Simulated assay, not measured.
Amino acid sequence: MNPPAVAGGGGLAGLAADVSALLGRDAGDPVPVGGGSICTAARLDGPGGPGAVFAKTLHDAPDGFFAAEAAGLRLLGSTGTVAVPQVLAADRNTLVLEWIEPGPATPSQAERLGRELAALHDVRAAAWGPAGPGFLGRLPLPSPTGPPPAAPEDWAAFHAEHRLLPFLRQAAGDGAMAPADVRSVERVCELLPRIAGAPRPPALIHGDLWSGNVLFAADGRARLVDPAAQGGDPEADLAMLELFGCPQMPRILAAYEEVRPVPGRRERVALHQLHPLLVHAALFGGHYGAAAGRAAREALSRA
């Protein structure tokens, strides 16, 4: 998730011992790595080891928190479309990945990322939502109690019931949403079958694709990190990437659309930004509730 920066719950104390235990070798001393808003992250480069690793920790993490992230990374990597860091180890409170050396966001790297995202979004998912537990920040992703819906025409009801309304209720209950903004989001949910465009089958998406989860690398190939991988609408990934800004965004989109054009996508950007804005309102409060209300009204005006 996107900051504001919030101190991670686990801290660096004990991280080296946890990573050493998971890897079965001396992981070295942790060097803090910034960029996240939920976990505490570090680079560790143990003496005589095979190389640096990236680790992050969260004290009292929800059940399945890091297991879900590890599973999502493995799932995305298994498609052979996008690049992700190798998962080295995970337990309840810690995740260890290979270290990817950051690099500049070059035009060629951005264009490759756009093409790779297009290829990812051509991978069909079995149903709407994640195959197992999923999280955005610390918040669990709600899922149906019965068999997950899978038909193209099921998306609108699934999205309203399991992606918009739960986070709207939480944000409103915490005082992060004004009544007028709540009504605007509720109206979007009512009209979603009409404003969502033509039904499409579920595709495999990253699910939390803000710019901080795109790691431009020194080797020239961007990696995707911290996914909430699930069956979803590909427009959600692109809309979230635009929401908080991403280096070389025009080149990413142009390369994507050369491979996988999506008619009418520009008119639906606000609609697909509504979910991450509601999640941010529930997590962080602040101005995100008002931003969700504006996005809802824009989506309604473009309908």
Rank of each mutant, 00 (worst) to 15 (best):
residue 238 L to C: 10
residue 218 A to R: 15
residue 106 T to C: 06
residue 39 C to W: 07
residue 267 E to R: 14
residue 26 D to H: 03
residue 72 G to H: 08
residue 22 L to T: 02
residue 285 G to F: 10
residue 66 F to Q: 07
residue 18 D to V: 02
residue 211 S to P: 07
residue 214 V to S: 12
residue 14 G to K: 05
residue 248 Q to A: 15
residue 52 A to N: 02
residue 49 G to K: 00
residue 265 R to S: 07
residue 46 G to Y: 03
residue 281 A to T: 11
residue 80 G to P: 11
residue 107 P to W: 06
residue 253 L to P: 00
residue 132 G to C: 03
residue 182 V to P: 01
residue 228 A to F: 11
residue 278 L to M: 10
residue 73 L to V: 08
residue 85 P to L: 14
residue 188 V to A: 06
residue 295 A to K: 04
residue 208 D to E: 14
residue 49 G to M: 03
residue 107 P to G: 13
residue 75 L to G: 10
residue 40 T to I: 04
residue 74 R to N: 13
residue 190 E to N: 01
residue 71 A to Q: 09
residue 117 L to M: 06
residue 223 R to L: 13
residue 167 F to D: 07
residue 213 N to Y: 11
residue 286 G to Y: 09
residue 42 A to L: 01
residue 31 V to C: 08
residue 298 E to C: 13
residue 88 L to G: 10
residue 95 L to E: 09
residue 156 A to D: 07
residue 66 F to I: 08
residue 294 R to C: 14
residue 111 E to I: 01
residue 167 F to E: 06
residue 224 L to T: 07
residue 102 P to Y: 12
residue 123 V to M: 05
residue 46 G to R: 02
residue 216 F to G: 09
residue 172 A to W: 05
residue 27 A to K: 02
residue 211 S to I: 08
residue 41 A to G: 07
residue 300 L to R: 10
residue 275 H to C: 14
residue 188 V to Y: 00
residue 154 D to T: 04
residue 94 T to A: 11
residue 143 S to E: 14
residue 251 R to L: 15
residue 260 R to Y: 05
residue 11 G to V: 00
residue 23 L to Q: 04
residue 160 A to H: 05
residue 103 G to F: 06
residue 9 G to I: 04
residue 288 Y to R: 09
residue 45 D to P: 02
residue 288 Y to C: 11
residue 13 A to E: 15
residue 105 A to M: 09
residue 224 L to F: 12
residue 184 S to W: 02
residue 297 R to K: 13
residue 49 G to A: 11
residue 118 A to V: 07
